[in-house]
Design a protein around this nucleic acid. Structure first.
Length: 598
RNA sequence: GCUGGCGUAGCUCAGCCGGUAGAGCAGCUGAUUUGUAAUCAGCGGGUCGGGGGUUCAAAUCCUCUCGCCAGCUCCA
């Protein structure tokens, strides 16, 4: 469907593209919201109010802020204004005139924006009594906004121009869709996301907890959560050994001297836990790289030794601001599936290719098949902020893009997003309900080899400096498991499920057979429980279903007699009886293939 | 860290214009011996996040503090 719009110069047009139309629609709804807010609260001043990926927001400056009840009032006022058929009236005026007007209105933030804008003339849109400096385009009239297709959702603080040193504004979020059905679907999806919340599932499935007494941002892994964790780690460990990595183990604390050499002491101090013992100062490690470098440096290295790939499930601790902590996704103590590759310049291209293969293989194995790749490079205008030579950056970027190109992987180039010590590739996974998660990262490092004066003897007998790559596949085990829980909504694939099978005897006389069944499966290395509680079968099934256990084996008189099990699958329900050995073959195959659905 | 909201039993929540706590689920005990998502009955369980204050009296009001939630900034 096409939407009628009005451009800044007053011409009227139509937009047929659904995405473009939605963006304009949301932007216009945000103006409607601002109009509602300024009419309800005349002492409010304006920030900016764009459309965003799933709605829109508007930032307001109001000393006393807003309270939750204000949101309802605002929404109500928006409906009233929408029904008044107000026109979005554009006008093009001189910059001077605009400054004068907004200064007169006390809109100093708008004035600031206008002053920064180049050009002599600019456009404004009027909506009733509300005038905003805006390039448009907009809907023609508020009558185009379906009062049932938008919502004012929540509010939060935000910094002017996104800078925490600036004044803090009140941001009000809303969402809008072209139809009320789409709004409804969106709200349903929010509910869905809530049901998958790993913090809730972590408790319900008894996977992990975070204790107020022990401190925020520190996860305690329960037996079932630890099982999943170990399974993930075992899978990776096996795969990494297969691909030429060596595992190493490094201490959790090290003298300040190490961190001074690495530079973290100066650049990362605000995130480090530092403490004194006797005369010495120690740091709880926030990163594993200096440790791996110690191992590299423990002996002379030759080009024949390279590449060296040191891997570690390295637990690090970083002080994070209290407001950023979030379940397992953002914690203060976490385990990186870290590795550092030391290679010659000639080898680095192959290493990156191998890494990309590895990342894709690992993600696929865990059931993710959608992803986005970002290549972060330095800000060309601020080269002095970055370490490494011109040649370093060129070589690194070349190596990264060549590998991506060779695999036909599409990527987005992120200007100015590189870390100061080198460019990187980040892989963002898309989960089951379409949300992106930043996990894998491959980063060049031009500074640590220099700081630690790393070298190897080349075939020419001269000492050369190795290239160093940091890489993590899962990022951190904690974050990855959080994402995995949400991706599967707690129903892990059979190979990762903490409990794979629960045997459900119907009555007490079937307990002995149930134990026989369970021990046969346990012998085959399956994770089995028997529910021999004094309850009805339906109760036990419900209990197993809510625990998302992949298979329930019901055993009663018939099964005891025939040596079978009645198989119930958590997704499909009752599958009927089959001989125990046959079930065993099926589940073993499911585990072996790491099949997502049993 | 900042803005706003919220902390009552293991979980979800009621009680909150002040009169010292309640439900459902979970747990425990007993009865029941059960055929594909909740059998019945009984019992135990809370220094109402913590400190201070106002008051004859505080889960309810004020204040400080800790934590959680939604964002912002930052990030694996």
């Amino acid at each position: 469907m096409s939407v009628k719009i009005v451009y800044a110069d007053g011409t009227v047009g139509e937009v047929a593209d659904a995405n473009a139309a939605l963006e304009i629609y949301r932007h216009s709804t945000s103006h409607l919201m601002a109009a509602a807010v300024t009419s309800l609260f005349p002492d409010t001043h304006l920030g900016i109010g764009p459309a965003i990926s799933d709605g829109f927001y508007y930032d307001f400056a109001r000393p006393q802020g807003f309270v939750a009840e204000d949101l309802q009032k605002i929404e109500k006022r928006m409906r009233e204004l929408a029904s008044m058929d107000l026109k979005y009236e554009p006008s093009i005026i001189a910059k001077e005139e605009a400054i004068e007007y907004f200064t007169g209105q006390g809109e100093h933030l708008k004035v600031e924006l206008i002053q920064e804008k180049a050009g002599e003339r600019l456009s404004c849109y009027r909506l009733g009594d509300f005038v905003d400096f805006c390039t448009g385009p907009h809907l023609v009239s508020t009558s185009q906004i379906d009062p049932e297709s938008f919502r004012v959702l929540n509010m939060a603080g935000s910094y002017w121009k996104g800078d925490e040193h600036n004044q803090q504004l009140q941001r009000i979020y809303g969402t809008a869709f072209l139809t009320s059905e789409e709004l409804k679907a969106y709200l349903t999806q929010l509910e869905e996301a809530k049901k998958r919340d790993h913090r809730k599932l972590g408790r319900d499935l008894d996977l992990f907890s975070i204790s107020e007494e022990a401190g925020p941002g520190l996860a305690f892994w329960h037996p079932k959560g630890t099982r999943v964790r170990l399974l993930v780690e075992e899978f990776l460990r096996k795969e990494l050994y297969r691909r030429g990595y060596e595992f190493v183990t490094t201490p959790h604390v090290a003298r300040d001297a190490l961190w001074k050499t690495s530079g973290h002491y100066d650049y990362y101090r605000q995130n480090m836990y530092v403490f004194n013992i006797d005369e010495d100062e120690f740091v709880l490690k926030p990163m594993n790289c200096p440790g791996h470098i110690q191992i590299y440096k423990s002996q002379m290295r030759s080009y024949r030794d390279l590449p060296l790939r040191f891997a570690e499930f390295g637990t690090v601790y970083r002080y994070e601001k209290s407001g950023v902590l979030h379940g397992l996704l953002r914690v203060r103590g976490f385990t990186q599936d870290d590795a550092h590759i030391f290679s010659t310049r000639e080898q680095v291209g192959d290493e990156i290719s191998a890494l990309i293969d590895l990342v894709l293989f690992v993600m696929k194995s865990f059931g993710f098949d959608q992803y986005k790749v970002e290549l972060s490079v330095r800000d060309e205008s601020k080269k002095e902020d970055y370490a490494g030579t011109e040649e370093d950056w060129h070589m690194a970027e070349e190596a990264l893009t060549a590998s991506l190109r060779a695999r036909g992987i599409e990527w987005t180039r992120m200007e100015g997003e590189a870390v100061f010590y080198g460019p990187k590739i980040d892989v963002k996974l898309i989960d089951a309900i379409g949300r992106p998660w930043q996990l894998s990262t491959v980063q060049f490092d031009f500074t640590l080899p220099k700081r630690f004066n790393l070298g190897y003897t080349g075939s020419d007998g001269q000492v050369h400096q190795p290239v160093m790559l940091h890489r993590a596949l899962l990022g951190s085990v904690e974050r990855f498991l959080g994402v995995l829980i949400e991706h599967y909504a707690g129903a892990f694939p059979v190979w990762l499920a903490p409990v794979q099978v629960v045997v459900i005897p119907i009555a007490e006389r079937h307990h002995e057979y149930a134990r026989k069944v369970a021990s046969r499966l346990t012998e085959a290395d399956l994770r089995v429980e028997i529910d021999d509680r004094n309850e009805k079968m339906g109760y036990k099934i419900r209990s197993a279903q809510t625990q998302k256990i992949p298979y329930m084996l019901v055993v009663g008189d018939k099964e005891v007699e025939s040596g079978t099990v009645s198989v119930r699958n958590r997704f499909q329900g009752d599958e009927g009886s089959r001989p125990l050995e046959e079930f065993l073959r099926i589940i073993e195959e499911t585990v072996k293939t790491r099949s997502v659905r049993p």
